[in-house]
C-alpha cells in the first residue's frame, strides 16, 4: 500500500508492523498507552496489543531503560520512548554503562536488542529541555548504534530495522518534522530496505557535498534548490546513521565534488561535523578544494524559543556555509 503519511504516523505504522511480526516486541514509556504518546506516535497501539505489550511506566527514565534491559535479558525486545530529548539524561547511566556495554562485558553471551526512541531537536517553540540534540553523547559510546530518520518513508523502515537489530539502537526522531507528510510504501518488504548503516543521496549534485541528518535534511534539500538558482549544484546526503558513519558514501561524494559542508542543530564544538571533517580530510585530502565547513548550533545552551530561529541553522545559514567553501 502506498499513501501519504505524516512522519509520526509512519513510525506508528512501523511499530505496529514490529508488534505484529514478533510477539517479544514491547513498547514502554511515559504516556505511550491510552494517550498514544505526547506526539501520538504510539496512538492506538495499547488498544490493539494490550497493556502487557504497550506499557505506561512510572515517570522515571532510568527506570524505563533499566527495566527494558532486564526484559531484554529475559528475551524481550523493548522499544522505549523517552518523551523529550532533554529527559534522556536521567537514563544516561543505564544507556552508557549498562545497555551499551553488556554484550562486550559478557563476551558476546548477552544481546540487548533495545531501541530507544528520542524525539530530538528544536523548532517547535517549546519550553527549555524540549529542543535538545543529545546525539553525540551516544555516538561517542561504543556498543550503541545511533540513527536519525528524516522523513516518513525512511522512518517507517528505519524503526523496524532498529527493532530488528540485535544491538541497542538510539533512534532519533526529528520532532519538528512529525507532521511532514510523504509517500510511504508500506507494502515493500523490510528485506528490500536500505540497511540501517547506510547513508543515502537525497539530492544529487556536482559542486559541493552537503551532509546532514534528522530535521535539517529537508532544510538542506531546500538549500540545494535555492543554490541551483545561483548556478551551484549541491549534492545533499542524509547520513541516517551517526554510529557507525557511512564513510564510503560520504567520501565518494566529496571525492567527486571536492567540497563539503556539514549541518546539524547540535553545537558545532564536539559535534558530528568535527568527526566528519577529520575523516573527510583523511579520506579525500587530494581531492579537497576547501576545508570541510560546519554549520550548527552555538556553544550555548539551547536558547529561549523566541531566539531559536537565530540558533538553529536555517536555509540562509546553510547557504552561507556553502558559499564560504567557494572562497578558498
Amino acid at each position: 500500500m502506498t499513501g501519504k503519511l505524516t512522519l509520526s504516523r509512519a513510525i506508528n505504522e512501523g511499530l505496529r508492523r514490529a508488534l505484529e511480526s514478533d510477539d517479544k516486541v514491547m513498547i514502554m514509556g511515559e504516556d505511550v498507552g491510552k494517550l498514544g504518546g505526547v506526539f501520538r506516535v504510539t496512538d492506538g497501539l495499547q488498544k490493539d496489543f494490550g497493556e502487557h505489550r504497550v506499557v505506561d511506566t512510572p515517570l522515571a527514565e532510568s527506570g524505563i531503560v533499566g527495566t527494558a534491559i532486564g526484559l531484554a535479558l529475559r528475551g524481550y525486545r523493548p522499544v522505549c520512548e523517552i518523551q523529550f530529548d532533554g529527559f534522556v539524561f536521567p537514563a544516561t547511566d543505564q544507556i552508557v554503562s549498562q545497555l551499551a556495554k553488556m554484550r562486550y562485558r559478557s563476551r558476546g553471551a548477552v544481546s540487548l536488542p533495545v531501541t530507544i526512541r528520542i524525539p530530538f531537536g528544536g523548532g517547535i517553540g517549546a519550553v527549555e529541555h524540549h529542543s535538545e540534540s543529545p546525539e553525540m553523547f551516544f555516538a561517542h559510546t561504543a556498543g550503541l548504534r545511533v540513527v536519525a530518520c528524516s522523513d516518513a518513508a525512511e522512518a517507517f523502515t528505519m524503526i523496524q530495522l532498529a527493532i530488528e537489530s540485535e544491538d541497542p539502537v538510539i533512534f532519533l526522531e526529528p520532532k519538528r518534522r512529525y507532521w511532514d507528510k510523504a509517500e510511504v510504501d508500506t507494502a515493500t518488504p523490510l528485506s528490500g530496505a536500505l540497511p540501517l548503516d547506510k547513508a543515502r543521496v537525497v539530492v544529487p549534485g556536482d559542486d559541493v557535498t552537503l551532509l546532514s541528518y534528522g530535521p535539517l535534511v529537508r532544510t538542506c534539500a531546500e538549500a540545494a534548490v535555492a543554490a541551483r538558482e545561483d548556478g551551484r549544484s549541491v549534492e545533499v546526503i542524509d547520513l541516517r546513521t551517526l554510529s557507525p558513519l557511512d564513510m564510503p558514501t560520504i567520501a565518494e561524494s566529496v571525492d567527486k565534488t571536492g567540497r563539503c559542508v556539514v549541518a546539524h542543530e547540535a553545537p558545532v564544538f564536539g559535534g558530528l561535523g568535527g568527526e566528519i571533517a577529520a575523516r573527510v580530510t583523511e579520506a579525500c585530502f587530494y581531492n579537497l578544494e576547501a576545508p570541510v565547513l560546519r554549520v550548527g548550533g552555538f556553544a550555548t545552551p539551547y536558547p529561549p524559543s523566541r531566539l531559536e530561529d537565530h540558533y538553529l541553522p536555517d536555509l540562509d545559514r546553510i547557504l552561507d556555509g556553502v558559499d564560504r567553501t567557494f572562497e578558498f
Binding site: 533499566g66 532486564g70 526484559l71 535479558l73 529475559r74 528475551g75 524481550y76 547511566d93 543505564q94 549498562q98
Partner: peptide, 19 residues
C-alpha cells in the same frame, strides 16, 4: 555501578510475569 542491577532484576521479573 552501584544499584544499576536492581532495575535489571525488576525488568527481568516483569518478563517472568509476561511469560
Amino acid at each position: 555501578v552501584i544499584g544499576d542491577q536492581t532495575l535489571h532484576a525488576t525488568g527481568y521479573a516483569m518478563g517472568i510475569q509476561r511469560d
